[in-house]
Amino acid sequence: MGMTLGYVEVTPERLDGVMGDSEQAEELYDELSDDETVRDAFIEKAWDGIQYLLDEAGVGVELRMDGDPIEHDGDEFNGFRPEVVKSIAESLNAAPFERLAEHYDPADMMARGIYPRIWDTHPAEELEYLSENYAKLREFFDAVARDGNAAIGCFSF
């Protein structure tokens, strides 16, 4: 499957309830990511390419690291409190994909080892892949922030 990144929406109270317990965090994440009524954003393997574009555009968002770590032996979980969700939403909303796309450089991405190292295969298609997943990410954080909620992120490897 490879390394993937996804997020699910939770209430601040539910996030608080799992912050000290990685097994509970994993169970909650798995339960909610399977529930079609729960808002989520699974950005697949696009996470590193999106992070590259954010970094190159000077957007101060760390997709994997902005939340509070929930220690775990396997997948990496982070809790994103409402104020962090709001900050991420504001940063992403201020950075339309067109601005990020100006920094798309398949050769540089390949040279830097940006996962999943596909960027020079079909550059136009891969840019579209990043655009679609960035849209999911923006919509997710914007909606969760509007509702005053939190999120759990799962980096699976």
Results as ranks from 00 to 15, higher is better:
V38A: 07
V61N: 04
F80V: 06
G60Q: 10
D68A: 07
T11A: 12
F157Q: 10
R117M: 11
D147C: 00
R99G: 04
Q24S: 12
G60R: 09
E90P: 08
G153W: 00
Y115G: 02
Y134A: 14
E98S: 15
D68T: 14
Y129H: 13
E76V: 13
Y129D: 13
R146H: 13
A135F: 08
L28I: 02
M65T: 09
E126F: 14
D66S: 06
Q24L: 14
F80G: 02
D16C: 07
S156R: 14
V10E: 08
R81Y: 12
G67K: 01
V61F: 10
A143D: 09
N149V: 00
K45D: 14
D142A: 15
S156M: 12
L100M: 11
Y52A: 04
G17T: 00
Y7T: 08
G2V: 06
I152T: 00
G58F: 08
V10D: 03
P82N: 09
P106Y: 00
T37G: 13
H72T: 07
V18G: 08
L100E: 05
N133S: 07
A25C: 10
N78A: 14
Y52C: 09
W119V: 04
A145Y: 00
C154I: 09
F42S: 08
L54Q: 02
A101P: 10
Y104K: 06
S22N: 05
T37S: 15
R14I: 05
Y129E: 13
Y115D: 00
D34S: 13
D21H: 06
V18R: 03
G20C: 02
I43Y: 05
E36K: 15
P12N: 06
N78R: 15
S87V: 01
I50R: 01
E56V: 01
P96D: 11
R81I: 03
I50K: 00
T11N: 10
Q51G: 02
I43G: 05
Y29G: 04
G153P: 02
G17M: 00
P123K: 02
F157R: 12
F97T: 09
L130T: 07
G6C: 10
L5W: 10
A89R: 07
V38F: 05
W47L: 07
A111N: 06
L100G: 08
P12A: 08
V38H: 04
D48N: 12
H122C: 06
D108S: 15
I43R: 01
P82H: 03
S33K: 12
G153I: 00
P106G: 03
K45V: 14
Y115S: 09
A41Y: 03
E90A: 15
I114W: 01
Y29P: 04
A145V: 08
S33M: 09
R146A: 14
T37Y: 11
D73N: 09
L130Q: 05
Y7K: 03
D147F: 01
G60C: 00
G153L: 01
D55L: 09
Y115I: 00
L130F: 12
G2H: 01
P82Q: 02
D16E: 15
